[in-house]
């Protein structure tokens, strides 16, 4: 994240503003109260409640009568979640998914953005729109479209490959993860192309001009001038991609109805959903959600640290 405001030196205008009545805390409160009330209700309170819930469990009382009672168990739910084979297996899948998805998607996005920025490219606006179009398709619908495009009998892809002698079952146990990677690449590449392309537009033209005068080819200046200069934008896209990956839910949830290769606990989010609605274990669902949120925070922090280090180097 490049946050310009927090570290911006106070300008003369800002200094003058501080003395003006009606721009201080009381006025600011009128503008900020709606947002922060919602922030408390929709983000802080649920997380606090979930943490509270995750520390208790339903236990049968010692003599077996009187039914279940709620007892404080400390971190037991967390230990149970973390030692669950299916939960950890879900993270294994997410990790494999990241290894495939992040390099492919960001690599493609960078290539397309550099090509769009190339001088010889025609019809730049039309290409941008076409590349971005999948982002206008909701995740559910994107997953549905691709689910059909993976289904033998309906899919033109499967039948074309079969005509060429290649038999691939996109929905088999081994292929379903790459198949989901493809759906995500389709959905998100164009979005990141636009971000990187906008960053490329901000690269000072005189630097490129000087390189060209010195005999650098366009390919050379794309790789050794433009790409390093848009590293900040690349790290922002990396950050949001990592956060987005942990959220994975929609695509496997939709595909789970099209193939038995995707189980009901296939990724951590589905595990938590399954805990809440199929296994009726709300404390474990709460614990799993908190683990996911913590991990997302940790990863975001790590990515921000890494990318800001890379920039100062």
């Amino acid at each position: 994240m490049t946050i310009r405001h927090s570290d911006r030196p106070p300008t003369a205008a800002a200094a003058a503003r501080r003395r003006i009545p009606g721009t201080g805390g009381r006025t600011a409160a009128i503008f900020l109260v709606p947002f922060f009330s919602l922030f408390v209700v929709a983000m802080i309170a649920p997380v606090v409640y979930a943490i509270g819930l995750s520390l208790f469990a339903q236990k049968r009382s010692g003599l077996g009568f009187g039914g279940a009672e709620t007892v404080f168990v400390g971190l037991e739910n967390y230990l149970n979640v973390l030692s669950s084979e299916t939960f950890v297996g879900g993270f294994g899948r997410l990790f494999l998914y990241c290894l495939m998805y992040i390099p492919i998607m960001l690599g493609l996005a960078l290539v397309f953005a550099l090509l769009l920025d190339a001088i010889v490219t025609k019809a730049k606006r039309a290409f941008q729109l076409f590349l971005f179009l999948p982002h206008a398709v909701p995740g559910v619908i994107a997953a549905l479209i691709w689910a059909y495009l993976y289904t033998p009998g309906i899919s033109p892809i499967v039948s074309t490959l079969a005509a060429g002698g290649i038999q691939i079952d996109f929905l088999s146990v081994h292929m379903v993860l790459p198949s989901i990677v493809n759906i995500a690449v389709w959905e998100w590449t164009g979005y990141n192309v636009i971000i990187l392309f906008t960053a490329l537009q901000a690269v000072p033209r005189d630097i490129l001009e000087a390189a060209r005068v010195d005999g650098a080819s366009e390919l050379r200046s794309a790789l050794s001038i433009k790409t390093p200069l848009i590293l900040p934008a690349l790290s922002v896209t990396l950050l949001f991609t990592v956060i987005g990956t942990l959220q994975m839910f929609t695509e496997p949830q939709i595909l789970s109805k099209a193939t038995t290769a995707v189980t009901s606990t296939w990724v951590p989010n589905m595990w938590a959903y399954d805990a809440a609605f199929n296994r009726n274990n709300l404390p474990q669902a709460a614990a799993a959600s908190i683990i996911l949120a913590l991990l997302a925070g940790l990863l975001s922090w790590a990515v921000t640290r890494l990318s800001s280090k890379g920039r100062t180097r």
Binding site: A42, A50, L246, Q247, N269, A276, A286, S289
Partner: peptide, 10 residues
């Protein structure tokens, strides 16, 4: 930075 889906179940 907190993923949307992490707060859905809470």
């Amino acid at each position: 930075l907190i993923p949307n889906t992490a707060t859905v179940l809470p």
